[in-house]
Design a protein around this nucleic acid. Structure first.
Lengths: 206, 206, 206, 206
DNA sequence: GATGAATGAGCCTTCATTCAT
DNA sequence: AATGAATGAAGGCTCATTCAT
């Protein structure tokens, strides 16, 4: 094991190290401050090496988002599906999403509040038929369809409704991240009321 | 009046000119492209002069955002209030807001999707009792209260509901601005469905 | 006059200094070695300053070529026109050109033996009607036309002939610059024979 | 034969493969785009391996140029000699040369417009008595001597004339390759006129 | 007030080359 | 023989900011 000090076990894993360093800079300093040089400094390698592992900054960015995104998907996938109460599953999932993002606000800002070409394909949600492309939208749409079949929900277009649930929650989340003067109590009230209104908005009228 | 031709009346108004130039660049080329040099070029002064009127780029930015925001408030204040159909007034107002912003997407991004301290006081919407501070929230809250009194709406906390209507719409708007692959038709469907769900979500059940 | 040492008289003339520095690097090290940084080093200023005077490297290059080219044009313009012996004027001019370039071989290589977009407009000679664009070609073409009128030369297309005289001489010059093993005597013989053949090639047959 | 599939017979021939890959990149993408990495990618070996076969990039370059040059010589050697019409043979040969090079403009630039030491001995044409060294010049000189003997041509020094024919054609070819705005028609006119002037320039006067 | 020259730090990227394995 | 990770130097360029005038 007597190799240069700095690279002991991680020698085979520089790619991961680069992504993590980028992720950290993103979280700490935000998107604009994320530079190849800064990453190189952080991992104590030369800038050139990054191009050994990634075609360009965009590809690196894509991988960073992918990793973060995968973690989210993982968290979401752990939520049990309750077919008898699809609305509960929806709220559960979206709340998990909110909590996940509130823990990494800078990443959210970097990823979700910017027009980064290379990650559009991971992040865009509004086009028609998106539920055929994006897993998370597929799941959400399916839950709504279940609710429709059971007679709980009333909506012409499950996907469209899924998109509105998503954009609404995205909006609340964005503001929760951007605004600093919101008490914990108020945060909770807002989150709960958000889902009250949304779910109420799609429930069948008696 | 014997000064250089180009600066006759506007000599005392250079500050305004700088802000407007910046605003225009912002709208046309986007936030990232807004540079001190570009502004100086546009107003046909030297870059240095900008530092006579603004401490630094940030301060200038604050002023730009402030101005844009004022224009929005003005637009919103012109919407007539229909007490018999508060939900129509709400939808009307929020749609005006959406349209206004879709016309100036770069301004929206600059204003709403950044943490510019000096304008927080103008832009933040989530704190409790915000309806006492911010006119636009006050109006929205009042409309909801009218609806409650008339027996149309059912909600415990008019302000909280106003906040959710706002954040939801903000979320949709954000995504509409950030995503490029959305057809005009789809945009309209999303906007309409957004208000369908929201209003439905607060209507009294029969 | 008590300003910083390094910039005494030349303060108003940095643009010229940049061009000259570039010219020198071009002559000494060749085109590939000409970099913005190297120029900045040479003039002891920061690289950024170059963009104060030139839009980009291409524009700088264009100016460098222009200056060199102007010097050549100046040299050529001093050649007296002998209407009775246009062939002598032609030979005279082309020999001046050869001598001029042999004194600055690296500039010739840099300018004439590369595809530099920004200077194409100064350097290209083969298109039809070039004699309406480029002074040097205009002059050469006119001399040939004079010879035709006087009955000395025989050619259908004066411009085409001018182009061949030019490309031929350009070819000889290129090789004289690229090849190192050519004695002075041989050089002279080649130059003289070049014009012998060319002029002979366009003279009227008795 | 139990080696990796992809390198069966060519294992001893990697040097050739490298040269060919480089040659192809040269033709397709140009001299400036020819990089060690690109070659390595093309042959599906690692960059390091190239340094097993070549001291450095320059040495590799030499070899590439050498190979290309050999191909040209081969093409030229196939031209039939017509002793009754030496001028036709000359024109024929030189046109073959032009066509060959117009098909591989990047190779021409690499070979003829650079000072690559190691190939000087193959490429230089201007020294006295070159016709004793270089086959192509020997052939050209002999054709001129035939013309002299037959009374067609008039020149004191056949080799010198050969050199001028060569440099003239080289000049035209260089410009044809460097200039982009030349129509096909104009190209042909230039080529034809070039030989008209040159041949006319050495024909015996009646 | 206003200029405009100048800086220094930063940006992404490419490359020939080396070297331990 | 061959790899592939890694470097260091260099490339063009942009920008907010300062400062003598």
């Amino acid at each position: 094991m007597g190799i240069t000090e700095r690279r002991q076990s991680e020698i085979e894993n520089l790619k991961k190290k680069i992504i993590d360093a980028a992720s950290e800079i993103l979280s700490k300093d935000g998107f604009e401050k994320l530079s190849i040089r800064k990453i190189a400094d952080k991992i104590e390698y030369s800038p050139g090496i990054i191009y050994h592992y990634f075609k360009d900054k965009n590809e690196l960015l894509y991988c960073v988002v992918e990793e973060n995104y995968d973690a989210l998907i993982k968290a979401l996938s752990k939520i049990p599906v309750d077919n008898e109460h699809p609305e509960k599953t929806i709220i559960n999932g979206m709340k998990t999403y909110i909590e996940f993002m509130l823990k990494n606000p800078e990443s959210f800002k970097a990823i979700m509040m910017n027009n980064i070409e290379s990650i559009e394909s991971k992040v865009n949600m509004l086009e028609k038929n998106i539920s055929k492309k994006r897993t998370s939208m597929k799941n959400l749409t399916e839950l709504i369809e279940i609710g429709i079949k059971k007679g709980f929900f009333k909506t012409d277009d499950a996907e469209l409704t899924a998109q509105i649930i998503w954009t609404s929650t995205y909006g609340l989340l964005s503001r929760l991240i951007l605004e600093k003067n919101v008490t914990k109590e108020q945060k909770e009230k807002l989150i709960n009321h958000n889902f009250e209104v949304l779910i109420n908005g799609i429930l069948t009228r008696k």
